[in-house]
Design a protein around this nucleic acid. Structure first.
Lengths: 244, 244
DNA sequence: ATGCATTTGTTCGTATGTATC
DNA sequence: AGATACATACGAACAAATGCA
């Protein structure tokens, strides 16, 4: 007979587990309130400090949010990729994720999104994409900020049309990291913007016609062209491997 | 003149920020120790509870780990995708991510990994893949557990060979979630295993020959065939869109 | 619009189990 | 084996913020 080593589990962890499970089971829905800290310390029969440590962890995971003085207790949050975003950002910073790897990942995701969108798009989603491109063209002379916002809107519409929430979320997270990295470096370059608009139109046309392969290939090419100059020469080869 | 709204930032958050930045800057390297809680409460001039709440958050993010009685204080952890894994798991549970979406995401990632691996593989990595497939065949009659472990080893080797840590990590995270979901449902099916081994061999052959397109396509097909029966009929269409 | 009661944020003091030297 | 320093956990207290009558 062999015994398992006993894992000493902290009191606050058990509280986290219980509340986490309640949320995942759907017993606690977004918008609902947790009991007050004093009530929780009675229910779990622990001290207030322990309750608070548990709440801090839950808050860090984005499951609840508590404000000082709120008599209704902590609020259960709807899911946001904030926690996901946080850990990916630290990954990018601590583990020295290169800009090349990030752009490459975006190429993979955006490519897949376009492939699927070409097949699954609805007329409303097509209209969104068209509107986004129109906004891109209109803002070409209004500076990088506005242009970038329209660009983001287009890629978001495509990601939504893919019908895969995981693609949508990861796309969103990695994009914001990339945009943060190149922020400042990205000057206003009218000719670059204009070319980008043309490329996006080609992508959209392929999506409209349901030609997923072309849409995916064009999307990869578009992104490569757009970020090429910000990726160190040594890393570009790996990116070009996706273009063949 | 416009003023910014004052965001009241909690004391423990500032502590989290400071330590987080120190880790991200590299001032605190994995393995190094934080000062003890009593020391920290002096340095930040806050109370013990506040320090502890900050440490709980940092621990939830996987940056540090503290154990009772350790005279050296909390230890800075090397980056692990544990936090990433956690938030993706809650995403899968709370936001009702379907098994179809998860498998589809794996198809996208694994496909990209194979495409890149075909181009960037080293002889050592090829040897790893060969060893993994050999282990798969050897364990075909030893039950699902051993077989699955060898299967994981193969996909891991490919992901590493892709040279993209983001692909590697996301692959790992999503795979473990999928395996968790189908756990139990997946009975021992010798003929399924045998077919899977053959498919993996075809993938490996394409990788060996540097034929990225074929490797990617075969990888998608292999995964689809393997998980098809566990994906509800209605969701399979979206998966098949990746096979054309 | 003004208090009032309640809640969270934070502090301090204390007791207990535990790891290291 | 003992001493020391540590994290864990408890409880009481005060300030600041919030919601409601």
């Amino acid at each position: 007979m062999r015994f398992e080593p006993v894992r000493t589990v902290r009191a606050y962890e058990r509280i986290v587990e219980q509340i986490e499970e309640a949320v995942e089971r759907g017993d606690l829905r977004p918008g609902e309130r947790l009991p007050s800290e004093r009530e929780l310390m009675v229910q779990f029969s622990v001290s207030r400090s322990t309750v608070r440590e548990a709440l801090r962890v839950l808050q860090a995971r984005g499951l609840v949010r508590s404000r000082p003085g709120d008599p209704n207790g902590a609020e259960v949050q709807p899911f946001t990729p904030a926690a996901l975003h946080k850990s990916m950002t630290t990954l990018a910073r601590v583990d020295e994720l290169s800009i090349g790897e990030l752009v490459q990942f975006r190429m993979v995701l955006d490519s897949a999104a376009n492939l699927l969108a070409a097949r699954l798009k609805t007329p409303e989603q097509l209209a969104e994409m068209e509107a986004a491109i129109a906004a891109m063209r209109a803002s070409a002379d209004q500076g990088y900020e506005t242009f970038s916002a329209a660009d983001v809107a287009f890629h978001d519409a495509v990601a939504r049309a893919s019908g895969n929430k995981l693609i949508e979320i990861c796309n969103d997270v990695v994009r914001s990291i990339v945009l943060n990295l190149v922020a400042g470096k990205l000057a206003d370059a009218p000719e670059l913007m204009e070319r980008s608009v043309r490329h996006h139109e080609e992508v959209l046309e392929a999506v409209r016609q349901g030609d997923g392969q072309s849409a995916a290939r064009l999307a990869r090419q578009t992104m490569y062209d757009y970020y090429e100059t910000y990726v160190p020469e040594a890393q570009r080869d790996a990116l070009r491997a996706l273009l063949e």
